[in-house]
Computed example of a mutant assay.
Amino acid sequence: MATSTTYGAREHARAQEGTTSDTMPVLPASDWPTPPDGVDPADLVWAETVAGGGYTHKALARGTELRLTDLAGDACAHLLLYVEGRPWERLNVADTVKVLWNAYLGEGHLLLSDQGRVLASVVADTSGRHDTVCGTSTLRRNTERYGDGSPHGPAPAGRELFTLAAAKHGLGRRDLPPSISFFQGVEVEPDGGLTFTGSAGPGASVTLRAEMPLVVLIANTAHPVDPRPAYTCTPLEVLAWRARPTGPDDPLWQASPEGRRAFLNTAEVTR
């Protein structure tokens, strides 16, 4: 079909309607073919497969549950969280680690803001291979390692992809704090060195619950300390559905004095 004229270009574009690919959002999300067990398809609000080297973003209501799945075993989901409508309150990785006395994410862990509030809680985890230490990759480092770290190049850097995602919500580079990453683990050795432990294999998942209304940014890129010479990152499945936020009767509220205080701080602004 000729596209050298406006009419031809329009016909060509319209002919693409209904075309699908393996990595794209599904709209409406309720059309996702395999909803999580026990989830009514009508409650799905986000259904997407993110390519390796891709990014995505979404505003989620308080109480929404978000499941990330490493489909082929080499996804690496770098994550940033912001309070919707109040983006100066955002994920603080240092406080997430410090307040809960644990640098290794897993079920029951709380993701905290710089205001001491719970942005999200980890309600399920079958991976156990995550990282709160290294952050995401940068343009300079990826260019040095792979020859090109630009967002549309063959080895996109996580920070460049976060910049694109943030712009969709009126945010810029100065609004990008350190991120956490899921599905590619790093261990800190007694001498302070880092050991890359990689993934838990295909099908591993982690489920978060939004304890405040959130803007979620995700960059699916190779981990910055992955020792493999080739840029390695495979598709990430992202599903979110309507659910309920944690209440005072939830065991997470009473799991630790620090967590209890964080939930009380959260309740102060979400009543």
Results as ranks from 00 to 15, higher is better:
T96N: 05
T96H: 12
T96Y: 09
T96Q: 02
T96K: 01
V97W: 01
V97N: 03
V97Y: 10
V97R: 11
V97F: 13
K98D: 12
K98I: 14
K98F: 12
K98C: 09
K98H: 12
K98V: 15
V99N: 09
V99W: 01
V99H: 00
L100R: 09
L100G: 00
L100E: 13
L100V: 13
L100M: 08
L100C: 01
W101D: 13
W101E: 12
W101Y: 11
W101Q: 14
N102E: 05
N102F: 08
N102Y: 04
N102T: 11
A103K: 11
A103H: 13
Y104D: 05
Y104G: 07
Y104I: 11
L105V: 06
L105F: 07
L105I: 13
L105N: 02
L105Q: 07
L105A: 03
L105C: 09
G106L: 11
G106D: 08
G106S: 11
E107G: 09
E107C: 11
G108I: 14
G108R: 04
G108L: 12
G108V: 10
G108W: 06
H109D: 12
H109I: 07
L110A: 11
L110G: 08
L111P: 15
L111C: 10
L111I: 14
L112Q: 06
L112G: 07
L112F: 04
L112I: 08
L112M: 04
S113Q: 06
S113G: 14
S113P: 08
S113T: 13
D114C: 14
D114Q: 15
D114R: 07
D114H: 06
D114K: 01
D114Y: 01
Q115R: 15
Q115F: 10
Q115D: 09
G116K: 02
G116D: 06
G116E: 08
R117T: 11
R117V: 09
R117H: 04
R117D: 01
R117P: 02
V118E: 01
V118R: 05
V118N: 08
L119N: 06
L119F: 12
L119E: 00
L119C: 07
L119M: 15
A120C: 12
A120T: 06
A120V: 11
A120H: 10
S121W: 02
S121I: 12
S121V: 14
S121M: 04
S121L: 07
S121N: 03
S121K: 04
V122C: 07
V122S: 05
V122P: 06
V122A: 04
V122W: 02
V122F: 03
V122E: 00
V122H: 00
V123W: 02
V123K: 03
V123G: 00
A124R: 13
A124T: 13
A124I: 11
A124E: 11
A124H: 08
A124S: 14
A124Y: 04
A124F: 07
D125Y: 00
D125S: 03
D125M: 03
D125T: 01
D125R: 06
D125C: 08
D125A: 04
D125P: 00
